[in-house]
């Protein structure tokens, strides 16, 4: 689920950036530092949308670096148990398959894949139905439901299932259903 929240961060800036573009430099550095990171508390920071305030800088003794307390608005993405996500398959093996929904990695184990889909090893490992109408392989688009999350300080990992109504393949690698 996506959230638009306020966060704070202390940015350290090298003295060489002090000048007319100090503010721009700070913001670009913030975006660089923050976007794409993951915290267990808030989830993945997807994008910084606005910088609310930049506080007074504090010169650190001995280094010359200046610390600016910054308050910014950003979009975060945090997966929850029971959430439905659309994802792209990244790897298929006999234990199940891995998929990505944006930054989050999801594993779907083979007993959470419908019973009528069986693993086909070979050149392109895949799960497919006996009549071959549905085939999940690398780069397939899959709609899945999250049944478990593992949230660490700096990473989030999920387990998904496609064994439910309206879940499963929604797009083939080439594009189109």
């Amino acid at each position: 689920m996506f959230f638009h929240i306020y966060l704070e961060r202390n940015m350290q800036l090298h003295p060489r950036h002090f000048g007319p573009h100090l503010r721009d430099k700070l913001i670009s550095k913030l975006i660089q530092d923050v976007e794409g990171t993951c915290s267990g508390r808030h989830g993945f920071v997807v994008a910084v949308t606005a910088v609310e305030t930049i506080g007074q800088g504090l010169i650190r003794d001995g280094t010359g670096y200046v610390t600016f307390p910054m308050k910014y608005q950003c979009v975060v993405f945090r997966p929850f148990k029971g959430e439905i996500l659309e994802s792209v398959v990244t790897m298929v093996n006999k234990m199940g398959f891995f998929a990505e929904a944006g930054p989050v990695q999801i594993f779907v184990s083979n007993h959470l894949i419908p019973d009528d889909m069986v693993f086909q090893s070979g050149d392109v490992p895949s799960y497919e139905t006996s009549d071959g109408s549905v085939r999940i392989q690398k780069d397939s688009e899959v709609r899945l439901k999250i049944v478990g999350t593992r949230v660490d300080a700096t990473e989030i990992f999920c387990i998904g299932t496609i064994k439910d109504d309206f879940l499963g393949l929604i797009g083939n690698p080439g594009g189109g259903a």
Binding site: M95, G96, F98, S109, G148, R150, F157
Partner: peptide, 16 residues
């Protein structure tokens, strides 16, 4: 558990 899957995966044969 399956939650450890990411760490267990072997890059060469793709198994756990």
């Amino acid at each position: 558990s399956a939650l450890d899957a990411l760490r267990l995966i072997n890059v060469y044969d793709g198994n756990f």
